[in-house]
Every structure is written in C-alpha cells, then in structure tokens.
Amino acid sequence: MKMTKLINCLFLGILGTTYACNNVTQSNKEAVEVGPSDNAAKAIIVTPTASSPSDELPKEKPEEILVEYQDSVDFQRYNVDAKKVTERAPIDWTSYPEAKDFKTRITEAYQTNEADFAGYYVMSVFGCGASCIMGFMIDIRDGKIYDLPLGEENSCLFAEDRAMGNRKSRLFIAGVCKENPEDRKVYYKAYVWDEIKKEFEKVEAAAFLKKT
C-alpha cells in the first residue's frame, strides 16, 4: 500500500512539474507577444527606421572669401608728390585744443608711425564705441592736428573695412559698408583731402573705383 502511494506521488509530482513548466513557458510567450516586456521594448528600439533630418551629418559651411577692397580702389587718381621731410615738427596742440582729450593716443601714433596719408600726415585711429571709430591726423611739417572724417556720422552698422588711407594719395575711405550682412553689394563713404583748403570733401565711388 505504501509502495503504491509512493509510486502515485512520484507520478503526480512528475506530472505536476511538467504542467507547471508548460504554464511558465506559455506565460512567457504571451508576455513577448502581447505585453511590453523589457525584451520587447529592446526589439522595438533596434528596429530600423527611416532617418530623420537630425540624423544627417551637419553640412559644411561654405568657405568665406576674403575680399581686399583696397584692390578695387584707385588711390593713384589722387596721387601726392610729397617731398622728403627730414625733421618732424612737434605736435601743435594749440591748433586743435579739444584733441588734448586724446593726447596719449595721438602722441603714441605720432611718435611711432611714419607719414601714412597724403604724403605728410600721420593718422591716429581708435575706437569710440560699438561700430564706431574716430581719429585725427597730424602734419609732420608743422605739427598741426586735423579731424579724420570718421565718428558716428561716418560709421556703418555692417562695415567690411574702415579707415583706408594711402601714404601717396589724398583719398580716404571712411568705410566700406553693407545694408545687411548677407548683401553682396557694398557702398563707400569716401573723402578727398584738399591740401589748399585743409579740409575733406566727399567723393562718389564712381570717381575712384577701378574699372573692371
């Protein structure tokens, strides 16, 4: 009797284990197909999808072309035949008393630089705020000081180049400007120094741009 019960228990145990295993297997299969298990989530993540714009490699920016605007300006049209000055005169502060507010900058430029405009003038150019520069020029023959046509009235919001002068020319380009940074066209704020009147006069671009 005991042997029979033992055999029955063993048989039921084996049968129960098999039944339990089948149930576990069935439950796992249902979880993969129906429920959002970890494995199912991973399978969805790695599924190939169409590439989005953010997946694309960043496009290379076009190479910027540096334009030398001085190359298009005919400085020789206002050529100066300057004589050599062997001794430089001291700065005459009485010729422009207000310039003393910038005495350090003017003095440094005059002592350091050679004549770099219209044959006899040393330019001193410096900043005066955002998008603004100002300056003076000093005559090495007598030390007198003159304004350069810069400052707010000759500034431009989008400046390509500024304060372009030439040692052998009376032409001064206050600014090469654009209306917008994307514009391809530029316009000029330009002046010619009148050595007799000792003043700058405006000049249009057609008078000094080289013919192309």
Rank of each mutant, 00 (worst) to 15 (best):
E199Q: 14
K144D: 01
P149L: 13
C132D: 13
E199Y: 06
K198Q: 11
V176S: 02
L148C: 11
M164T: 09
A163N: 07
K144A: 13
L209F: 03
E179V: 11
R141V: 07
A118N: 07
I140V: 15
Y120W: 02
F117R: 07
K189F: 07
M164R: 09
A115L: 02
G175C: 03
R141C: 10
L209S: 01
G135S: 12
M134I: 07
S131A: 06
A174F: 01
V203M: 09
F208E: 00
E195M: 15
C128N: 14
R162I: 14
K189S: 03
F117V: 07
F158L: 00
K168D: 14
D142T: 03
A118I: 00
F136V: 02
M164D: 10
S124D: 10
G127V: 09
S131I: 00
D116M: 00
K178T: 04
D139A: 10
R162K: 12
L157Q: 15
G119N: 01
R170I: 07
A118M: 04
E199K: 15
L148A: 10
P181I: 10
K185E: 14
Y121L: 08
K144C: 13
F117K: 06
E182V: 08
K210W: 04
V192P: 08
G129N: 08
S155E: 13
K211A: 10
E152V: 06
E152R: 15
D142Y: 02
G151I: 06
K198G: 04
D139H: 04
G175Y: 04
A206G: 11
V125E: 12
E199I: 11
Y191Q: 02
C177M: 10
E179I: 09
L171Y: 12
Y188H: 09
F117E: 06
G175K: 01
N154T: 03
Y188K: 05
A159C: 10
Y146N: 01
I133H: 10
E114M: 12
Y187K: 06
S155R: 10
E199W: 11
A174P: 03
A205K: 13
K197E: 15
Y146Q: 04
E195P: 06
G175S: 15
L157C: 05
M134L: 04
F126A: 05
F172C: 13
R170Y: 03
E204R: 10
L150S: 05
F200D: 01
I133K: 13
E179Y: 07
F172V: 08
A115F: 04
K178S: 02
G127M: 10
M123A: 08
K168C: 07
Y187I: 14
G143E: 03
A207R: 15
C177S: 08
A207V: 12
D194T: 12
F172D: 09
A174D: 03
R184P: 00
A174R: 00
L157E: 15
K198A: 11
K202E: 05
A205S: 12
E160K: 06
V122K: 00
D116P: 06
A206W: 01
M137D: 08
A190R: 01
E114Y: 07
K144E: 11
Y121S: 08
N154Q: 09
F117L: 09
N154I: 03
A205T: 02
E179Q: 14
L209K: 01
F208P: 01
N166C: 11
V203H: 01
N180C: 03
A115V: 03
R184W: 05
S155K: 14
E195H: 13
S155T: 12
A130R: 14
K178F: 02
V186E: 02
Y121I: 05
E153P: 04
N180T: 13
W193S: 08
D183C: 02
E201L: 11
